[in-house]
Amino acid sequence: MSTRHALEQLRAELDRSGQAASADQLRRYLRLVRELKLRDPENVAQYGSQLLRTHKAQLREDELWLVMEQVAMAAMDCKATDLANSLVFAIRSHFPNSLRGERLMSMFAEFKAMGQAAQLEEVQGANERVLKEHPQNELFRKREVAMQKSLGNLPKAIDLLKKYVELFTTDNEAWEELADLYLQAQMYLQAAHCYEELLMHRPASIAVYVQYADVLYTMGGATGANYRLALSYYAAAVKLSKGENTRALYGVCACQAQLNGIGKVSGRGASSAGTEDHSDLASLAAATLVQRYQAQAPDMLPLVEALLTSEQLDASV
């Protein structure tokens, strides 16, 4: 997080110095964005083009092309066609045989197609040709998935990405993307599988716990097993975030409400529905929610209280 803080500082500095920003500042900013893999197209395009315009001679060969690629992508992102155009072609003419250059070209072609299906198909055909020659190239495989996604061809995208993660099983981001695609296709079981994979790769990430629990909760079921599991994972997120994660708190409440309902339907008390009773956790979560809303958004408080009452949770701990 300290690097992110440094980034904020640098951005503030750059804002202050404007056009007079030194080459060193600009370079540091761009490098940080690259390292953190952030998507900050407006700033990158602005500062990057500034750097390339005024301090090009100060950049060393290896850094120069990295910056150019970065700025070209950012320019595409914020639809600065002219800037992107000049940079992409400069890179392409300098590295005529590079696959990375080719990918940039295909991204540029995709950008120019502007979501028109016919032209996108053309780009995709070109991509497939490249992939035939280099079946192991990660970058192009990912592009392919992105392209299918932007074409709206969800099953194809899922299929391609599935093949990709089979080959690159440790690629976290790919698993995350695949989970997202499965969610869009409403294939919750498969999405849960992806999140389990992510849990093993990033066991300290609160977001993964919450997302996995979300999927489990969505799957639901009459036996309540999924709700109990979801409750555990929401609880883990609560524990890891020390109660700061609002979504996890809501999740705990919702799961408990579902479990209570199931307990009632099956004619037993809430306490015997599961192996253990965690209703104290739910009411604690509800109390925490109320407290947080009181402190940070008092005008929303009635809504929260109404919801909690409808879930029949007692927030007065």
């Binding site: 409750l231 609880a235 109660g243 705990v252 104290d280 956790l281 109390a287 925490t288 701990v317």
Partner: peptide, 20 residues
Amino acid sequence: RLEGIEDLAASTLRARLSEK
């Protein structure tokens, strides 16, 4: 590893609430 996490989470929340 999440066995009994609910109790841990409950105690975390309790501590937080009483602190506040």
